[in-house]
């Protein structure tokens, strides 16, 4: 496993748990939320990894854990050979200029009392502490131009921009420290469809122009397919399937991925009426006391027996680059696309 550390970003059995504390009277433990429960991943430089799953599957916690905004309970994370999970809280701020995050809600993630100039200058100074005056202004203008905003608007406050423009400012801020890795947590979910496509185009362009590595988190598989090279599907804190974007969307192996892909409504009436859906039972169970064995059994639409609840499936490479949580009930040996 040692050579894996030479890759750009390596996650090794990362777990992030939240302790709910003890009951005041009985002193009994209220339980532990296992938001991320053993994730191992390798991301190559320049790649875009899509992370999909339902709300509550741990995809946001995982991205915050990579950002070291939440420290992992156990497991290790390496970025360019440096072990992030071992760096102290004080020193992590220095390193964080190498990896930046774009948040879902551009209304909440920008400081309403700071102009765009202030916001961006602060971010630029993490990389160039001595930048000031004309040099700083020039850097800010350049950033704004990169994200498709007019540099003349740099003295404005966030409320003077529309949602799409605000998300552009948030992207500019993430780019300001010249990071190598960008984690985008649902960057388009809060936007209207027509604005969404503008931001997707922008992210795609930036990625190819600047050679950024990106983790793109979303619950919308069609958006993720469009932007990602590879897709990881998360369920209850674990990765159930990982592979090329096309393979995951068009030819998934795991029954959960099939359910996800078949649940996406397609804007085409004839195709929509013709297709067969894998409809899951109920909702995602609570991560406080996650189901044993293959954690998918309470919702599985396929027949299964007690064995499914007992054996934790292995995460195996079933074809080159295509990994799946190999539960014999969820993955049919003669799997063909159900959608």
């Amino acid at each position: 496993m040692s050579d894996r550390r030479d890759d750009f970003l390596v996650l090794e059995n990362v777990k992030t748990h939240f302790d709910l504390g003890r009951d005041f009277l009985t002193r009994k433990s209220k339980g532990v939320v296992k938001a991320v429960d053993g994730v191992s991943l390798t991301i190559k430089e320049g790649e875009t990894l899509g992370l999909v799953g339902e709300s509550g599957c741990g995809k946001s916690t995982l991205s915050r854990t990579i950002m070291q905004l939440i420290r992992p309970t156990s497991g290790k994370i390496w970025l360019e050979g440096k072990e992030l999970s071992a760096i102290s809280d004080r020193d992590i701020r220095d390193v964080r200029k190498n990896f930046q995050m774009i948040f879902q809600d551009p209304y909440a993630s920008l400081n309403p009392r700071m102009t765009v100039l202030d916001t961006l200058s602060e971010a630029i100074r993490t990389r160039h502490p001595d930048s000031k005056g004309d040099d700083l202004l020039q850097r800010v203008s350049e950033l704004l131009r990169t994200v498709g905003l007019n540099p003349a608007q740099m003295k404005r406050y966030p409320h003077e921009f529309s949602g799409g423009q605000r998300q552009r400012v948030a992207i500019a801020r993430a780019l300001a420290p010249e990071p190598k890795l960008i984690i985008a947590d649902e960057p388009v979910s809060a936007l209207d469809v027509s604005i969404q496509s503008q931001i997707l185009n922008l992210l795609k362009r930036l990625k190819s122009e600047m050679g950024l590595t990106m983790i793109f988190v979303s619950h919308d598989l069609s958006v993720v397919r469009y932007i990602s090279d590879r897709i990881a599907v998360m369920y209850l804190g674990r990765i159930t399937e990982l592979g090329n974007a096309e393979t995951i969307v068009d030819d998934p192996l795991h029954i959960y991925t099939k359910a996800l892909t078949s649940a996406i409504p397609v804007p085409d009436p004839r195709a929509e009426h013709a297709r067969k859906r894998v409809i899951l039972q109920g909702d995602q169970p609570s991560p406080i006391d996650p189901p044993s064995g293959c954690n998918f059994w309470p919702r599985s639409p396929v027949e299964h027996d007690a064995q499914m609840k007992e054996t934790v499936p292995e995460f195996v490479e079933i074809a080159t680059g295509h990994w799946v949580s190999n539960c014999r009930f969820c993955v049919e040996p003669t799997a063909t696309s159900a959608s």
């Binding site: 469809v193 027509s194 969404q196 503008q198 958006v223 996406i264 804007p267």
Partner: peptide, 20 residues
């Protein structure tokens, strides 16, 4: 027609999405 052109699931992957 413009709205339909902006939807990622309808477009080819390499293609740039149309923006209104």
């Amino acid at each position: 027609r413009s709205l339909q052109k902006t939807i990622p699931s309808l477009q080819e992957k390499g293609q740039e999405l149309y923006t209104i």
